[in-house]
């Protein structure tokens, strides 16, 4: 167990290092002089030169990569070229908004998907099952930016049920989170459905019925816990995919989250912020996978002894 955990930690570190090197190289492959971006088109040659010296822009790329990794290893993500705010601070101040939207979205889609998946498995082939299947396909196929705009237009602007944009409180999070949830709920409803269908055919479900368990206990106690094992894995991986969706939704609803920060930094060619947000996402993905690994042991006792 200890060995397994330390080997997981080692490979997590390798993943993060790889991400750091790759983002650095990619950002450097983007055409354009960063100094021009910082100083503006009318800056004098002296100013440009000063900036080049300050950010080591004239040195060879492998040396600059070395500086970058060294900074990262010391926990220093650098400063924004545009606002001069430390990148770590920019991310941390925006983190709560993104985390709140994401968490709310996860809660929303799980609360919908789990009952839908369980009931469609129980009543497989019924009209209810078929309607949910169609809606799930729809949910899977809708593009995030389109759905976000449509909901914003109809529910907020036309009907006035939700704030249109911006962030001044919990109610501003509802529609963005609902958008994310609607985009994901179909996939999870099908995932729970297929796992549950398999579980419901297993002998221990028959045994649970045979000992007098109520249908609710059969489905939600004996069935669901087993059906959720693969769902938890996918959920862990989806925290990554969620960051992608958040990007669109935050921008449409003008939420001051990490998604808007990332998009702004790309438009501004604000290299430290771009690299910082990418690194942050990588940490989240790797961390989520670690958490899932630990959760897994709790939810499926068979894994403990197999490790």
């Amino acid at each position: 167990m200890l060995f397994r955990l330390s080997s997981r930690l080692f490979w997590s570190a390798v993943t993060l290092l790889g991400t750091a090197v790759l983002t650095f190289l990619l950002v450097n492959a983007v055409p354009g002089d960063v100094a021009r971006v910082i100083a503006g088109p009318k800056a004098s040659a002296d100013v440009i030169k000063a900036i080049h010296t300050k950010f080591h822009l004239d040195e060879p790329i492998w040396k600059r990569l070395g500086y970058h990794l060294n900074d990262l290893a010391h926990g220093d993500l650098g400063q924004s070229f545009v606002t001069e705010q430390p990148v770590a601070e920019a991310i941390l101040t925006r983190l709560p908004t993104t985390a709140a939207v994401s968490a709310l979205a996860i809660v929303m889609w799980m609360l919908l998907a789990v009952p839908l998946g369980v009931l469609t498995a129980k009543y497989s082939g019924s009209w209810f099952d078929r309607i949910v299947l169609v809606l799930s396909t729809l949910s899977l196929s809708l593009p995030a930016f389109w759905l976000a705009r449509m909901l914003q237009y109809s529910l907020s602007y036309k009907l006035g049920w939700f704030p249109v944009a911006g962030f001044r409180g919990f109610s501003h999070l509802l529609l963005p989170a609902a958008t994310l949830a609607l985009l994901t709920v179909g996939y999870y409803a099908r995932l729970v459905h297929s796992n549950m269908t398999e579980v419901l055919n297993s002998p221990y479900i028959r045994a649970a019925r045979a000992k007098g368990a109520s249908e609710t206990a059969v489905l939600f106690k004996h069935g669901l816990r087993n059906a959720m094992i693969p769902v938890i894995t996918v959920l862990g991986m989806d925290v990554a995919g969620l960051l992608g969706g958040v990007l669109f939704v935050e921008n449409v609803f003008a939420l001051p989250g990490i998604g808007t920060l990332a998009v702004q930094s790309v438009f501004n060619l604000d290299v430290p912020v771009i690299m910082g947000t990418v690194m942050f996402s990588a940490v989240i993905v790797v961390g989520a996978n670690l958490v899932v690994d630990v959760l897994y042991r709790w939810i499926d006792p068979r894994i403990k002894s197999a490790a």
């Binding site: 297993s202 002998p203 221990y204 028959r206 045994a207 649970a208 019925r209 045979a210 000992k211 007098g212 004996h222 816990r225 087993n226 939810i299 499926d300 006792p301 068979r302």
Partner: peptide, 20 residues
């Protein structure tokens, strides 16, 4: 009645016990 008046023992004990 199930598991009360009538109890069952099944063929595959490994699969009939809930693994979790």
């Amino acid at each position: 009645v199930r598991g009360g008046l009538v109890s069952y023992v099944f063929q595959e004990p490994g699969a009939s016990l809930n693994p979790v």
